[in-house]
Amino acid sequence: MESESRAGRPRASSRETLAEAACELFLEQGYDATSVADITRRAGVSRSSFFNYFSSKSDVLWSGLDARIDKALVALAALGTHADGPAVRAALEPVVHDFAPDPLALALRNASAMGLEQELLRDTGIRHARISSAVAATARSAGVDEIRADILGSALATAVLSSLRVWAEQGAGQASLEQRFDEALHSIHDLPWG
């Protein structure tokens, strides 16, 4: 059974409507105080509709980035023994390319107001570990020694996530995320691939 929607809000069950409702509530009452039931009530959809799009409340923030990371991990694995610095960077660039402001960007910019500092810190660490591990595995498969592979993985994962955070915190429309990523890559240029 669908909940009654807030006055003035059209009934819809789209991912965007749910994400918008969630972000509104995170700003109004904080992340921890917002339940999935609150989000579905605000969006005017059933609980099952929420779970058609998101696996959890946290997934509202991260699902867009996670889909991009998933594609990058596939691209990294496909490089095999032919991996080198430019190929790895090319596999990671789609994570930041044409990244439109989304719930994650809003959360990064308004972390304090939404009560999300700890949540973002923890969940960013998960994404960092996924990217870092995949880059390190790619480097090892191309013959890079263990420690250097781990350092490269961590550095490149940090470049992706730091550029995203800075871009969002400074206002997503102020500079391109691609430019921020390029700046981040230049800052780690002293870490040679081979």
Rank of each mutant, 00 (worst) to 15 (best):
R11F: 00
G171I: 01
W167T: 11
L177C: 13
S46P: 02
A77N: 13
V36I: 12
A78S: 15
R89K: 09
W193P: 14
G173L: 08
L73N: 04
D145Q: 12
A134Q: 01
L27D: 08
A155S: 06
E20D: 15
A90M: 08
R11C: 02
W62F: 15
V36T: 13
R130N: 09
D98M: 05
T124W: 00
Q174N: 10
S14R: 09
E146V: 02
L121D: 14
S55E: 12
S49R: 13
E24R: 14
S48F: 08
S13L: 03
D84P: 03
E2Q: 11
G44A: 07
E24Y: 05
L106A: 13
R68T: 09
L185D: 06
A7R: 14
R42W: 09
V45F: 01
W167H: 13
L152T: 10
V135E: 00
A91Q: 12
S163C: 03
V60P: 10
Q170A: 09
A87G: 11
S163W: 00
A33K: 15
G8C: 12
C23H: 06
L185S: 04
W167C: 12
D32K: 14
A100E: 14
S63I: 05
D145H: 09
C23W: 03
G64A: 13
E20W: 14
E4M: 11
I39E: 14
F26N: 06
L116M: 10
R180V: 05
E24L: 07
A159R: 12
L120M: 00
P10M: 07
G153W: 00
S56N: 09
R109Y: 00
A139H: 09
V144F: 10
P10V: 13
L121K: 11
D84H: 08
L61W: 09
D123I: 05
A91H: 14
Q170F: 03
R122E: 05
D182E: 09
I147C: 09
E24F: 01
V45C: 15
A111D: 00
R148D: 07
A168Q: 03
Q170S: 04
L92E: 07
G8Y: 11
G80M: 15
V95D: 06
S5N: 12
A107M: 08
A184S: 14
V96F: 09
E24A: 04
R6Q: 12
I151M: 10
G194T: 13
R9P: 01
A77W: 02
E16L: 06
P94K: 08
A21W: 02
D38N: 15
E2A: 15
F50M: 09
K71Q: 13
P192T: 14
G194V: 10
G194L: 08
S56R: 04
T124H: 01
